[in-house]
Design a protein around this nucleic acid. Structure first.
Lengths: 332, 332
DNA sequence: TTGAAAGCGTTACCAC
DNA sequence: GTGGTAACGCTTTCAA
């Protein structure tokens, strides 16, 4: 790793001082005569000089790096989130340090500590579970941080409007004329699954529809939704529609339905929430209330780069994408 | 961002010098008397001191960070690869800086340059296209680098044994007694799709089986495999089995088959190569020659952290996982 | 076994 | 407009 030329080499070649070179490179904080500036730029080009960002970071106490911790980098939802965040960060000249928490609070804490030690400028966290224990050390460390996907009162957050998403999903099934609807996912918290389930539930209750509520206590295990749906279809034939609170739940439900001989999209309707790329490519293609990943990623990065005094939680609307699984016959 | 206590503060509190504190913190390079060491450790604990890795990195010219660039962080295959690599890196005390290349050589170059500027200790690259143009600047920069998934002669690489994977997939279909088999994916290069296709092709040719070769010129677009399969099924009813060179291809094929009224796993067999988590959860579940992500991720990290003088390319065997799509009836 | 001090490469203050 | 130079916080040599 031959260490390249330094700012001193540039200064020497341009016949000036390191201070002036720095002024040119950073467009300030002091003005530089055009002729001098030109000589400096020539020297930079001749030498192929590239600034040492480590030294710059030490001096400025800014690394140009943002940390992101998600429960699982490989899960489609978080993978799409990471891509969106990385894109937004790259566009703004920031690099992204990522970590997987394995849906484990302990591991999440280690990842956050590692990011703190790496001196990232800011931290984005998609909490694996209850955000509270993760937020406390971040606040104490005095580092800008924003929660993503799952929020926490008093902490800046960017997420989808999950309650509304749940409403949209339920309303769509209602629009198809379904009477007895099953809800895959439940909860009383302010996590996405709980919010979506309650949003859907509210709409169904409002319309006096019977609801079969399936808790799926481990919502991250597709097997869980699979087993719950299998049991449901066997015991409650009157259910004609399923509202899944995540694509993972939908995947399990779809499998159970198919194995039970139900033709999803024909004699069973299924609507999902998340709308990962995956949904479009299943058979049948999944009707899903779709997450605006790019908007969320961009908003998360912008929020963290322009911290305001009062932390706010912003929720982005999800939009219904109709495909086959709900019984719709989309054109094309 | 209140900058915490420094090594000077620790030294002062322990009544010794910064040098000794450093020796204690790093277990060397000089010995420290037990009593002194204890005082230092006490001071560290009392102050809640955490070393500034920026300063350490500047001094040591090592950041403890590894860069990884993949074509698309959101694609299931690369998402699983990233998780495996991150895991291995984290275990060894390294952080991971990631970048998406958007399957674009120009963007890939920018990402690599950004990693170089960030002074990462080493770079892992899953090339988007021809690795050659990306490898040259890495070599010139004198930074340890290892290619993943897609390799290049003369450059260290860790990948799957793609030729063998293709052979396994074809052999399995042969074992099911299929005669006319379609091959989804083709190529003459040493990229995974080409190698897998050639491996499969060799086995089929060897057994004198007719092969329908579908190029899918844009193998990253699932639509491409979908359209190719749709045309194939319409025009060549004698085809009873499809060998897909990636899960993305298989997804498209599965959709086309279902829409054409074929029951995959019954009157049409489908075997895929990649074996992302997805394969297990499709309906029917996909029989796939499965990538050992963890082994590849670990090997990639270990290879890059222990560079040898002669770059070698290591290929890890993929293993067949039988599920429903090929017509097997797996127990359970 | 310990400590003073010289850097690592930048930035930016202060003087000219 | 320009140039010395003192930091940033750490590691490690060299001398004691």
């Amino acid at each position: 790793m031959a260490t390249g030329p330094t700012i001193r080499d540039v200064a020497a070649r341009a016949g000036t001082s390191t201070a002036v070179v720095s002024y040119v490179l950073n467009d300030g904080p002091r003005p530089v005569a055009p002729a001098t500036r030109a000589r400096v730029l020539d020297a930079v080009a001749d030498l192929g000089y590239r600034r040492n960002n480590l030294a710059r970071a030490l001096r400025a106490n800014r690394t140009g790096t943002i940390g992101l911790v998600v429960p699982d980098l490989a899960k489609p939802f978080f993978a799409e989130l990471v891509r969106a965040v990385e894109d937004a960060a790259f566009t703004r000249g920031f690099r992204l340090l990522v970590g997987s928490a394995h849906f484990d609070a302990g591991r999440e804490g280690e990842q956050l500590q590692a990011l703190l030690d790496a001196r990232v400028d800011a931290i984005l966290l998609a909490p694996s579970q209850d955000p509270a224990p993760a937020v406390t050390p971040l606040r104490r460390a005095g580092i800008p941080h924003v929660l993503v996907h799952r929020t926490h009162p008093g902490t800046a957050g960017v997420a989808g409007d999950d309650t509304d998403a749940g409403r949209q999903a339920a309303a769509h099934l209602l629009g198809h004329g379904h009477h007895h609807i099953a809800l895959l996912g439940a909860g009383t918290g302010d996590d996405p699954v709980s919010l979506r389930a309650r949003g859907a539930d509210a709409v169904l209750t409002e319309h006096d529809r019977p609801v079969s509520r399936l808790a799926c206590p481990f919502p991250n295990l597709r097997d869980d939704a699979y087993l719950a749906t299998r049991a449901l279809l066997a015991s409650q034939p009157q259910v004609t529609a399923i509202c899944a609170t995540t694509d993972e739940h939908a995947l399990g439900a779809l499998r159970a339905a198919t194995e039970a001989g139900r033709r999803t999209g024909d004699d069973l309707a299924l609507v999902s929430i998340d709308g990962t790329a995956l949904a479009a490519y299943l058979t049948p293609a999944l009707t899903a209330v779709t997450t605006p990943f790019d908007a969320i990623g961009t908003d998360a990065i912008d929020t963290i780069l322009n911290p305001t005094s009062t932390p706010t939680i912003r929720r982005h609307p999800l939009t219904l994408t109709t495909r086959r699984s709900c019984g719709c016959r989309p054109t094309g």
